[in-house]
Each structure stands twice: as structure tokens, then as C-alpha cells.
Design a protein around this nucleic acid. Structure first.
Length: 639
RNA sequence: GCCGACCUAGCUCAACGGUAGAGCAGUGGUUUUGUAAACCACCGGUUCCGGGUUCGAGCCCCGGGGUCGGCUCCA
């Protein structure tokens, strides 16, 4: 079954990876303590406040409150001010153990319903993985400062005065225990660092993230637009975005042809019976668009037949299975690698949409490999190699491999899972790839290999995934004839590399900060004649470059400095200025995108230029203004 | 879907409940320019949509849509 690649901010991962992410004991204590101080400040402002959880997270902390009125951004400075006073008092954090009944009585008297709920949960279960709280010997741990007492395992800094420079960032809604059936609390996010320098660096990083935001760059760079009248979550690829996509698709097809894939096209809608059989309607129906009621009026008079019901495809797998089943398959044909740039539509809830990264219509670079169990391990390995090659080409770094094994709720027999997991493990083992186990992290129908990677500013994204599907081959009875003449169940490996073109390009925009490599560039060269006297020469240059299959923009009108500024603003990879001197010498002056003032290279011959650009383009070189994130081997928080 | 904030020209943003404005972009002209924004003029509006309150609504109230920050979800 298809699984979209998820590119997720590491912040989104914070919940599940919190322990790994909070950046060491010292930062943990600092952030946890600051959360307590914030909670104390909120209690001063709202004496009737009830408290949820307030843990440290990647880069900061949050605390959840149940308050008598909604918070706004304007409340944050007031809370910060009170926090500063508490810090200024330099009061100690004091630790105490309470018996469970004492704790229940204490928090019960103060109407702290969520704390009571948590203590009761702890009393039953001993500990709570989500909050780090625990009961030891029938006692729970609390900390207090300045009269504010909180259930908490610690540790904390010794005194409030040890709290470093902080800033409250935002308010948001959050469900109690992350459960949308439970009450919704108000969450305040904040950040705190040991030094002003580190706080400033972090705030600068937030600004950099904002500058790179693909939603901000999409319009000015003519990459994409989401038009309200067309519909939210539906992407219009503007001319420059379409060029990037076309290059990606062309390369994708070439690579897949070279690797023995069979590329197909399958319909955008399919009869209801398809999705009944696949299980999509049952398991996934609320995310599907449809039904479309199609009346086949050519089929006789009266029109009394009930209309046929069709649904828009949310995944490509049923179509690929039908391609496989278009005739009896022999073991000699395997592995059969079926691929498609398949456009699918899924209804996503309004609040989840996000630029190109989370949309309702998108094109997956989807493939299903049909093979025997004997071939599975090798095929998985080949896909893995291809995935690593993809990440390298685009300049993503620091790949982290995860092997996600059988979850508790699952389909199929233990033997099938053994086989599937073994095949994945062996594929990694053969390559001597270090990987981490994600026990129970597989999807209900398949174990998988997940590849995560870092972008140019060190954010972690989820990349390609490879799964062995144990479900659909059964449901559709997918078989081939083996060398004994028997029908044998085929193994189906599902994989995506880009995930979806929308999400991948959205990610690339941020990764490159809009500065795409030459091979993907929409304006590979801007040709600017200094004056009209050089216009004919400039046209000749442009023509020669176009013959060499470069995308060229000739801009002859107006102030030269303005034209240069415009070319830089359009992110032209190279700006070529030609005047009378160049016309006489038969050269161009070359200015690379992002070059500083006076950094242009003069007197370059056209042949030399074309040779250089051709190499850069054809090797898919990363651009000179691309500054890859350098991994320090640990979390960036440890700085 | 949920909590909160927001929605004014193509874009970024102004305008006390009292005549909707600026910069950039666009168009027309002037300027003939040597490496990051030349000058003048013009054009540009259902102030997201629909109701309501008011002598009068961009502004206040109600409903809907969309966006943003999160939560939940991401099959």
C-alpha cells in the first residue's frame, strides 16, 4: 500500500524523540526550570489557572494551561516581565517527595484537575513515558519555587537566578494528553539558552527559516501558487516551478529506464469495486474524493439502471497491480518494476494543509516492484542505493536509516513478517549500513526502511521509504508461475524517492533558499547588453547558449544596474554582461549568482563559458552559493 | 476538524465609526546607461464572501470561506 513520504520538521518529531532532543542534562534542566518559572508567572496573572504538562522540547520548552480566557500574543510580554522578576529574586528550586494520597490531596485542594489526573495515572501505571513522571515507592516527586508547586521529576537548576536569556514565542491550542477527544488547553512556547549569544543565534535561525519559507518564495520566484478559487491544497505550478518539475521528471524517467523499470500510466478514477477490494474504502474512505455517479446512458433505454460509482484515486497501487495482472506472469519476467509519476487526490483536513508540503492533490514518484521472496533482498538493496543517490544529488546530508518492524496491530502471519523483516535487514546488512531499529514502528501491513536526512540548515526531514507490502498481494491474489509451474504469491515492494513532486520541490525551495542548481534553474543565464550598440552581439550570445540547450533571458532595456539587480532577484544562475569591449574581443563578462560587488569575471570566451556551464549542468553540480549544513555529530542544541 | 490570531491594489503594508492611500510591480514616455534597484506620468479596489447594527462600516456584531501559529491527522 502506498505511503507518502513525510517531510516533517524536527519540531514535529519532538514529541516522540523528546528525550533524545532536549540537548543534554544541563539544557534539559534549564528549559524545564524556565517552564516552571513561566507557569508560576501565569499563575500570578491567572490565579484560577490549571496546569497541564510543561516539558522541555527541541530548542526550548512549552507549558499547557487551562485558563479563564484565551491568551493573545500581547499577553506574552506581560508574562515575560513577571518571569524576569522571579528570575531576579533568585529563589531556590526545592525538591520534595509526597505520598500519592498527599499529592492527590494537595493538587485536589488547588483544583489542579490535570495534575490529579496525571497522579492517578501514575499510581496505576507506575510511570508515564510521555512526561518522564514516575511513582517510586508509592511517592511522587514535586518541585517548588516562589510558592509555585509542580509535579515534576526534575532535575532543575538550583535557583531561578540561574535561568538564562529566554523569550516566549507563541501561543497555540493543544489537547490534553494529545488526544483530540480530551479538552483543549492553551500552550505557550518559549525558548531559553545559557547565553545571550546562543539565544540570538537561535532567533536568527528562526528568521532564516522564515526567509527560506517556500510559501514566501513561491510567488515572487514564479514557482507555484495556491489559488483560493481553484481550491485550497491544490497547487498551480507556475512557469519556473514547472521547469524545475520538468527537469526532475525527465531525470527521474531516465534513471528509472536505466535501472530496468517499466513506466506506465493508470487512470485517475476507478470503479468502486477496486477500492472495496483494496480495503481503501473501508480504511481510508473518509480521505477519498467521491463517489462520482456515472450513468452509462449508451447502455440501453429507460435509464433505470443505477449509476456506477467511481472514486478518485488516493494511491497508485491498485492500478499497478492491475498492470501486473494484465497477463499471466512467469518467474522469468521477475522482478517486474512498475513505476509511475502518479497523480493522486486525498481529502486532508483543513487545518493540516501547508503550502506545497501538505496538499490535497499531488504526484507521487511511485513504484511497485513485483518479485519472488528470493529476489526481494536484492531488490530492496537496489532501491536503497538509488535512494542514497537521490539524496546525494540534491545535497541532503547525514542520512539516518531506520528499520521499522512489526507493530502490535498488524495483518498477516508471523512467518510473513519474519520473512519481510529479514529481507529488509539483510539488504542493509549486505551494504554494512549502520541503522537504528524502530521496533514496532512499521505500518500495519508492512515493515519498512525509513531514510531521514538533513537539509542545508540542519533540519531533519523524512526522506525515501521502502516497504514490503503484505496486504495487497493477498487481497488482489497477485501471483506468478514459478519454475515448477505453480502459482506463487508475488512479493510487492513499495517505494517512493521524491515522495511527491509537490512536497519534494517545496522542500527543495527551502533547502536551496530559492537558489537552485544550474540543471534545475529556470533562468540559467541572463544576457545583458550594456548599451544598444552591443545588442546584436548579445543576441548572438543568447542564441549560441540556446543552441547548447540553456535557458536564457535577454534583457536589453533600461538601466544596466537595474537589470543586474533584477537578474539576481530572479535568481538567474549566471548574469552575462556584454558591451562593446566584449563584442570586439568575442568574450563575455560572467557574474555568478550571489557574487559580491566587483566579483565578476571578465574576458571569458563563449566556448569556454559553454564548456564550463555544460559540465556544471550535466554533472548536476550543487551551486556555488549552496552552503551545506555541517553536522557536528550531535544535536545542534548541544552547541 | 479543534484553539487562537489574521484577511485592504498583483506583492508588502497605511487609513480615530466620517472622501480608501503609499512603495514596489504593470502600462506609456523620457534617459543610452559598464556590474544589486534612473526620471515623469498613467493604470490599478466587491477592503475575502453573506447578513446585521448605525445618519454613516475597511473598522462593531453574527454566519461562512481562506491564511498563519500550534494540536490532532498524515492511511
Amino acid at each position: 500500500m502506498t505511503k507518502a513520504i513525510l517531510f516533517v520538521w524536527r519540531e514535529a518529531m519532538a514529541r516522540t524523540e523528546r528525550r533524545a532532543d532536549h540537548g543534554g542534562e544541563k539544557l534539559y534542566a534549564l528549559r524545564h526550570s524556565t517552564a516552571h518559572v513561566m507557569a508560576g508567572a501565569v499563575l500570578e496573572l491567572f490565579p484560577e489557572a490549571k496546569f497541564g504538562f510543561g516539558p522541555p522540547v527541541a530548542d526550548g520548552f512549552y507549558y499547557d494551561f487551562d485558563l479563564p480566557r484565551p491568551l493573545t500574543e500581547e499577553d506574552l510580554p506581560k508574562i515575560e516581565e513577571r518571569m524576569r522578576k522571579i528570575v531576579g529574586k533568585d529563589l531556590p528550586f526545592e525538591h520534595k517527595d509526597l505520598s500519592v494520597p498527599e499529592a492527590l490531596a494537595f493538587f485536589g485542594e488547588r483544583k489542579q484537575d490535570y495534575k490529579v489526573d496525571q497522579i492517578q495515572k501514575l499510581a496505576h501505571e507506575g510511570k508515564d513515558d510521555e512526561s518522564d513522571d514516575e511513582v517510586i515507592g508509592g511517592r511522587v516527586s514535586v518541585y517548588q519555587h516562589d510558592g509555585f508547586v509542580d509535579l515534576c521529576r526534575g532535575p532543575h537548576v538550583e535557583r531561578t537566578g540561574k535561568i538564562g536569556p529566554f523569550k516566549l514565542l507563541s501561543v497555540a491550542g493543544a489537547y490534553w494528553r494529545g488526544d483530540e477527544t480530551k479538552p483543549q488547553l492553551q500552550r505557550i512556547y518559549g525558548t531559553v539558552w545559557p547565553s545571550q549569544k546562543e539565544l540570538d543565534a537561535y532567533l536568527e535561525k528562526l528568521k532564516e527559516i522564515e526567509r527560506r519559507d517556500h510559501r514566501k518564495l513561491g510567488g515572487p520566484l514564479q514557482l507555484f501558487r495556491i489559488d483560493e478559487e481553484i481550491g485550497s491544497g491544490l497547487v498551480l505550478w507556475l512557469p519556473n516551478g514547472a521547469i524545475v518539475r520538468e527537469e526532475l521528471e525527465n531525470w527521474w524517467r531516465t534513471v528509472h529506464h536505466e535501472r530496468g523499470y517499466t513506466l506506465v500510466y493508470t487512470p485517475h478514477i476507478a470503479h468502486e469495486k477496486t477500492y472495496k477490494r483494496s480495503g481503501h474504502l473501508e480504511k481510508y474512505g473518509e480521505n477519498m474524493y467521491g463517489p462520482l455517479l456515472l450513468d452509462d446512458s449508451s447502455q440501453g433505454a429507460g435509464g433505470t439502471k443505477s449509476p456506477q460509482r467511481f472514486w478518485i484515486k488516493p494511491m497508485n497501487c491498485p492500478g499497478h497491480i492491475k498492470v501486473f495482472q494484465s497477463r499471466i506472469r512467469s518467474y522469468r519476467e521477475l522482478p517486474l518494476r512498475i513505476g509511475e509519476l502518479g497523480t493522486v487526490y486525498r481529502y486532508e483536513r483543513g487545518g493540516t494543509l501547508h503550502g506545497m508540503l501538505r496538499v490535497r492533490g499531488f504526484t507521487q514518484d511511485d513504484s511497485h516492484i513485483f518479485c519472488s521472496w528470493d529476489q526481494a533482498q536484492e531488490e530492496i538493496g537496489k532501491v536503497f542505493d538509488l535512494a542514497m543517490e537521490f539524496m546525494r544529488i540534491f545535497g541532503y546530508s547525514d542520512p539516518q536509516i531506520y528499520l521499522a518492524t512489526r507493530p502490535e496491530r498488524r495483518l498477516g502471519t508471523d512467518e510473513m513478517w519474519d520473512k519481510a523483516e529479514t529481507a529488509l535487514r539483510q539488504a542493509l546488512g549486505v551494504r554494512e549500513v549502520p541503522y537504528k531499529m524502530d521496533e514496532g514502528g512499521g505500518v500495519f501491513y508492512a515493515p519498512k526502511i525509513d531514510i531521514k536526512m538533513r537539509d542545508a540548515i540542519g533540519r531533519e526531514w523524512q526522506g525515501p521509504t521502502i516497504q514490503i507490502d503484505l496486504n495487497l498481494p493477498e487481497r488482489f491474489d497477485v501471483t506468478f508461475v514459478n519454475d515448477k509451474g505453480e502459482h506463487e504469491r508475488a512479493v510487492m515492494i513499495h517505494r517512493v524517492l521524491f515522495g511527491s513532486l509537490e512536497r519534494f520541490v517545496g522542500g527543495l525551495i527551502e533547502h536551496y533558499a530559492g537558489n537552485f542548481p544550474l540543471w534545475l534553474g529556470w533562468e540559467q543565464a541572463a544576457v545583458l547588453p550594456v548599451r544598444d550598440t552591443a545588442r546584436v552581439y548579445a543576441e548572438g550570445i543568447a542564441a549560441r547558449l540556446r543552441e547548447a540547450r540553456f535557458r536564457v533571458h535577454l534583457d536589453a532595456d533600461g538601466d544596466l544596474r537595474t537589470r543586474i539587480a533584477n537578474a539576481q532577484r530572479r535568481r538567474a544562475n549566471y548574469t552575462l554582461v556584454v558591451g562593446d569591449k566584449e563584442a570586439v574581443a568575442g568574450t563575455v563578462s560572467v557574474r555568478r549568482r550571489g557574487a559580491g560587488q566587483g566579483d565578476e569575471e571578465r574576458g571569458v570566451t563563449l566556448d569556454d563559458l559553454i564548456a564550463r556551464l555544460s559540465v556544471e549542468r550535466d554533472t548536476k553540480a550543487l551551486p556555488a552559493d549552496f552552503a551545506p549544513h555541517v553536522s557536528n555529530g550531535t544535536d545542534s542544541l548541544d552547541a
